[in-house]
Design a protein around this nucleic acid. Structure first.
Lengths: 212, 212
DNA sequence: TAGATTGTTAATCGATTAACAATC
DNA sequence: TAGATTGTTAATCGATTAACAATC
């Protein structure tokens, strides 16, 4: 178990399992729209190119109970996954750095659907400040600390250029942020009680270039 | 070993190892800029919050040979990682869907530095066609097939809206594309010999919301 | 030399997969 | 009923970690 896992591990499900759950949810919601009432792990597995046993194990960790020979009740399964992922609750977030990547994230509908609620965006660019990007108002980055202190912000999404990433991280952790989703390429230094999740496209590109 | 791994596994290093290598490379390049000639696995591990043994194992898979008591020669290590990842060669790519996310990827400097060469972008939006985004010209998506057939395109980066993702994938695989980096939320169906890598922000968001 | 680091071989750990009884 | 699917328990597989000899 590596350091990241050691730091954040506390759920009954493994991180690979947690990462697969959204794809099940997406599929089962679509099934519901199509009027399906019951779905089996086998069907899910076939659709997603996974092993049925893996799907059963993953679903079991959400607490859902299926019916042998039949499958899972679609509405129950949706509820179980949403609840397990805490996607039945709102998560207040701010986005820092309203460039192209930031704008893309503000417009990402999956987030909206699943409870990620962007209270505000922040940028230094005068021409952006005061404008709206996908319904989210861009604020002056100078107001960042006071905003975080006043509002109940759970998650900070960091899409600034790497040069100022650490500085921004210092500011928001001092203001009380406990979770940072880091899209910069900087390895941030933050207090131990802050959860850091780093998004790293270079590692995916590495997989691509090794195998293609 | 799951189906994705079974399909693409053929390198000596595991996928987790491949995914960690870029962070080592980034760090070692910085060390070089700072005038460092020799670096030890222990130092790299401390900087990245990893175990020294893991770093040594990972580096060993690139073929680099270190000196006991001393460490690795910085220039050799950079070369070894670059070579192992095929980042010493150019990879011709096209980007399909020049929205915010697509534009962000076209401007991502790490790609440029590491051999990912965007030959062209494609979009349906008339107002974008003919313009340049970070030095890459946006073409009419109608010219996609003929472009792929004429040019030596290795990688297609898919940042279109999900509704047309499968249609575009059909078109480009028919035209001969062998690697697709899929940023849409659609589970694409492609011929068996096409390498698919899916980028999925929902799974990261799942990890965040379970632990925060 | 003494001690830090590499690299190899073995042990551990955890995730995936298999087997199969229970069940509707 | 027969057969498909769940859920549990055990086996396997692979990645991480530990131990330690080799070495500069």
């Amino acid at each position: 178990m590596n350091k990241l896992n050691r730091q954040i591990k506390m759920s009954s499900a493994s991180i690979p399992t947690i990462r697969r759950l959204p794809s099940y949810l997406y599929l089962v919601r679509k099934a519901k729209e199509d009027g399906v009432d019951i779905i089996s792990g086998t069907v899910i597995a076939n659709d997603l190119d996974l092993e049925p046993i893996q799907v059963r194990k993953d679903l079991a960790s959400t607490g859902i109970i299926g019916k042998p020979r039949v499958g899972y009740k679609v509405t129950d399964l949706i509820d179980a996954i949403e609840k397990f992922l805490n996607w039945d609750k709102e998560h207040n977030a701010i986005l820092i750095g309203a460039g192209n990547l930031g704008s893309a994230l503000l417009g990402y509908k999956e987030f909206l659907i699943n409870g990620l609620n962007f209270l505000a965006a922040f940028d230094i660019d005068e021409s952006k400040i005061g404008t709206e990007i996908n319904r989210t108002i861009v604020h002056n980055i100078d107001t960042l600390s006071s905003f975080v202190q006043k509002e109940n912000v759970q998650i900070a999404v960091l899409t600034v250029r790497s040069g100022i990433a650490q500085e921004v991280a210092d500011k928001i952790t001092k203001a009380g942020i406990k979770t940072i989703w880091n899209f910069t390429k900087v390895k941030l230094k933050v207090p131990k009680d802050v959860l850091l999740l780093k998004e790293d496209l270079s590692s995916s590109y590495a997989v691509l270039s090794v195998y293609s």
